Computed example of a mutant assay.
Amino acid sequence: MFQRKNYRKPGISLLLWFCCIGFARAQVPNDHIAHRRVLKTEEAVWSNTTGCTVQRSCVDESLTGKCVEYHNDQWFEFTPATSGNYFVNISGQTCRDTRGVQLVVLTGKPCEPATYNIISCTSLASQDDIFVLLQALQSRQTYLLNVDGYLNDQCRFKIEVSTKPNGIPAAVTPVIPAGNFVQNGNVTLHWALPDSISATGFRILRREASQFKAVENGRKAVARDSYGKLLKDYSFSDTLTKPGSYLYQVVAFGTTNEVPVLIKQEWRTLRNVANAPIWYQLPLEKYPNKAELAISITDAATGKILQRVVFRKQKNKPEQGRLLVNNWLAGGIKTIRVEIQERKKEKIISGSNFLVDLDK
């Protein structure tokens, strides 16, 4: 007789084994500084920060200040054949979060932080294609490149050391200001072309704070007046249709041999009109019952009249002095001017005039 054999379905332990194999494969060899990847000029290679760990004895965060906190770094090295300027191009980022990667370039003996000299440190907050300019590199000098996921972001990316830039200049993203709201979604940017920059045009990029990458929102050509004199001042208008905070970047570009330059970075915010109403209560307590009140509300910044109303104060009706301010906030109005006049037989017998900060 044949013996019946018991076959079991793969259990949890087997599934965990497969997961571990997948994780191990995700970790790149150059996670370890001893296995750092050697880059050749104009050679673009793919890598990723997933599963990488930090060799704490090989890094020193005090050398880079607040620029970098190491979470999942990896190592490359580059030795230029000739002295000169080079660009580290990072492109094709696909990350778990918005933040992208950060880059440190240094000289020194591998895993001996006491010998390190920081050449460049770049922390981004997006997944844009960027380049970092490395000036006056020396031939036959080895440079170490450390790439880390910004705040432990898990990223796949392409890195290249080249004599030509690719993407936009790397720059620290400014903090979103408390103000700088736009009215009715209308945005106008102003900038000047510095005398030190040779350019033929400008790219205007826009990225909402939660988005991964910036998109080109328009272009402006460098212009001359009727006498052939180069114009210095430029502007660009845009309209925002969805609430959010938007980063605008203006990049000057020129011929093939000219390096793009970041001219301007500026946040603009379009507020969302909250579902719950936002009220401001006018101070009417000092006025007697049945007093005739004329109230005028204007935008303190522009003088535009927002609301006018005349009524007789009624006892136990505080809603008479309530102002709904949602739309004003959404339009970027920060401060209003309130003028209250008490009238009797069409004559003004008392009045007050004061400013109200809607942000507080």
Results as ranks from 00 to 15, higher is better:
Ser91Met: 05
Leu103Pro: 12
Asp129Phe: 07
Gly303Phe: 06
Gln135Pro: 00
Ser196Met: 10
Gly303Met: 07
Arg99Tyr: 13
Gln74Thr: 00
Lys220Met: 10
Ala291Pro: 09
Lys242Ser: 14
Asn257Leu: 09
Leu193Glu: 02
Val273Ser: 09
Thr49Leu: 09
Cys67Ser: 07
Cys67Asn: 08
Ser62Gly: 05
Ile278Cys: 01
Val259Gly: 08
Ser198Thr: 15
Gln307Ile: 04
Arg203Tyr: 09
Leu15Gln: 11
Gly321Pro: 06
Val28Gly: 03
Ala294Ile: 01
Tyr7Gly: 07
Tyr287Asn: 07
Arg56Ile: 07
Lys347Gln: 08
Asn257Val: 11
Thr239Tyr: 14
Asn89Gly: 03
Tyr116Val: 02
Gly100His: 08
Arg8Pro: 01
Val101Tyr: 06
Arg268Pro: 00
Phe78Ala: 07
Pro260Ala: 02
Pro260Asp: 01
Ile12Tyr: 04
Pro169Glu: 13
Leu240Cys: 04
Val38Phe: 13
Phe87Gln: 10
Arg343Leu: 15
Leu16Glu: 13
Leu284Ser: 12
Leu358Trp: 05
Pro174Asp: 08
Asn117Pro: 00
Asn117Val: 09
Thr41Lys: 13
Gln138His: 02
Lys229Gln: 13
Glu216Phe: 02
Phe253Asp: 09
Thr269Cys: 02
Leu270Ala: 10
Ile118Asn: 07
Ser91Glu: 11
Ala209Asn: 04
Ile204Pro: 01
Val132Cys: 08
Gly100Asp: 05
Lys232Pro: 04
Leu323Thr: 11
Ile168Tyr: 10
Leu39Gln: 07
Val38Arg: 07
Ser198Asp: 14
Cys121Gln: 03
Lys232Asn: 05
Leu189Trp: 03
